[in-house]
Amino acid sequence: MNQVILYTIISLSATGVAAAIILFLIAQRFRVIEDPRIDDVEDALPSANCGGCGYAGCRNFAEACVKAENMSGLFCPPGGNDTMANVAGILGMEALEQDPEVAVVRCSGSFACRPRTNQYDGATSCAVASSLYAGDTGCQWGCLGHGDCVRPCEFDAIHMNPETGLPEVVDEKCTACNACVEACPKDIIELRKRAKRDRKIFVSCINEDKGGIAKKSCSVACIGCGKCEKVCPHDAITIENFLAYIDPVKCKLCRKCPPVCPTNSIHEIGFPPRKPKPEPVAKTLEAGESDEPTKKEDKK
């Protein structure tokens, strides 16, 4: 009995040693010599593999960085400027600063503002729905609400609000990786310059219908009236196809445009509450406004 155990131990150990030697030799023979800096760069990255840089994953991005002659065109949105400075340091190159950005949902057609006109009953996917038809409301531009933007987010930074049926971005978590922007078949989500204290002013609508049609389908649609364009002191607002757009670079966040918008489609977020002014602001407040908590606070 003892002998059997002994033989077993000896033979198994011998097999193990032999296998180890063979594996060692093979590993030596077929070793892939890689630039060690790739590992260093990869370690410096957030390893979220979100694809925001345009490469398949962090490893691919690291390889691209090591191969590149300068850092132009290489940027890791989740890591931001700090990470890129580290990466550039490892590679002995100059980092190119980029303004941090944040995803913004440009539709505020909640259930209350945008009445349903039919019932969608297909696969729960915005891509499927949008290839079928305009959507279950009168607005063919707006959010379909099936959450295609939520699924690809690696950072848990965008959620559907069941009360409004619209996605909401958590600014602190958003890394501007672009995944939701690409996922949205209606191109509603946009990356905009991230300002101090996450303040932002933007037109929360992409409806290019004529004012009357837009307003009929959604009470908070931009009707392209041009009031904001006139009031803007920085030439940041343009109107094209009955739709206002605020250029995030030109906009100085002066807060002149939101009060003049007759449909409340310009949102201002992250600002202290406005002081009550003698001007009849109340006139611009109309139905549907009650659905926007952020806006309500701002107006008060």
Binding site: N118, Q119, Y120, D121, G122, A123, L132, D136
Partner: peptide, 9 residues
């Protein structure tokens, strides 16, 4: 009649 249902074929 309520809302019509729309779904892919």
């Amino acid at each position: 009649m309520g809302f019509v249902t729309v779904s892919p074929s």
